[in-house]
Simulated assay, not measured.
Amino acid sequence: MKQFILGAMLAAGLCGMAGAQSTPPEVAKQQEREIARGEPARWLKDDRGMQAQVATKRKEIGAALNEALNDCKKMSKSERGDCVKEARATYKQDMANVRELVAQSNELGKYDTAGPSE
């Protein structure tokens, strides 16, 4: 779950489109049907080793790139080129630093972010 949240944050931050929804409508409907059935067990299962965590992070970085490129397509032609260039640069940088990103995700997981318990 931690990896999903970080990936979503990365995707939202690309191209200055924080909070923008770039999921195609047909995919969003499929996601709604899947979520209605409950969370898949794989969402709650931690990646066990560094190799599995790196593989997951690579998938997330790729998904963030796809979302950013979809957002770029919605921009005016004059803005689109810079957006695509920025998205690809971020992808390249994130892939080059994938192990550091995994380590940062693991550090974030050490802290309780649920708020004060009563």
Rank of each mutant, 00 (worst) to 15 (best):
M1F: 10
M1S: 11
M1Q: 10
K2W: 07
I5P: 06
I5K: 08
A12H: 07
G13H: 04
G13C: 06
G13Q: 07
L14D: 07
L14G: 00
C15I: 15
C15W: 02
G16C: 04
G16D: 00
G16V: 00
M17H: 05
M17P: 02
G19T: 01
G19Y: 00
G19N: 03
G19D: 00
G19M: 02
A20E: 10
Q21D: 13
Q21R: 13
S22F: 04
S22G: 09
P24Y: 10
P24Q: 06
P25S: 06
P25R: 07
E26M: 08
K29S: 12
K29C: 05
Q30N: 11
Q31Y: 10
E32M: 12
R33I: 01
R33P: 04
R33M: 14
R33K: 12
R33S: 10
E34P: 00
E34K: 14
E34I: 09
A36V: 06
R37S: 15
R37W: 06
G38Y: 02
P40D: 06
P40R: 09
P40V: 07
A41E: 15
A41F: 14
A41N: 14
R42A: 13
W43N: 15
W43C: 14
L44G: 09
K45Y: 02
D46P: 14
D47T: 06
R48A: 11
R48L: 08
G49Q: 13
A52H: 08
Q53E: 13
Q53L: 11
Q53M: 12
V54Q: 05
K57C: 15
K57I: 03
K57H: 09
K59Q: 13
I61T: 02
I61V: 13
I61S: 00
A64F: 07
A64E: 00
L65I: 01
L65Y: 03
L65A: 05
N66Y: 05
E67V: 08
E67T: 08
A68Q: 06
L69Y: 01
L69N: 03
L69C: 04
N70G: 12
N70Q: 12
D71F: 02
D71L: 10
K73G: 11
M75G: 05
K77F: 13
S78K: 09
S78P: 00
E79T: 01
E79W: 00
E79L: 06
R80F: 05
R80E: 08
D82Y: 00
C83A: 11
C83I: 02
V84S: 05
V84G: 04
K85Y: 10
K85S: 14
K85N: 14
E86C: 01
E86Y: 06
A87W: 01
A87M: 01
R88S: 01
T90K: 11
T90S: 10
T90H: 07
K92L: 08
K92H: 09
Q93C: 03
D94C: 11
D94T: 05
D94M: 13
M95S: 01
A96C: 04
A96M: 07
A96V: 01
A96P: 01
A96T: 03
N97K: 12
V98P: 02
E100K: 13
L101V: 05
S105W: 07
N106Q: 12
N106D: 11
N106C: 03
G109V: 07
G109Y: 03
D112C: 09
D112L: 05
D112E: 10
T113G: 09
T113W: 15
A114G: 09
G115Q: 08
E118D: 10
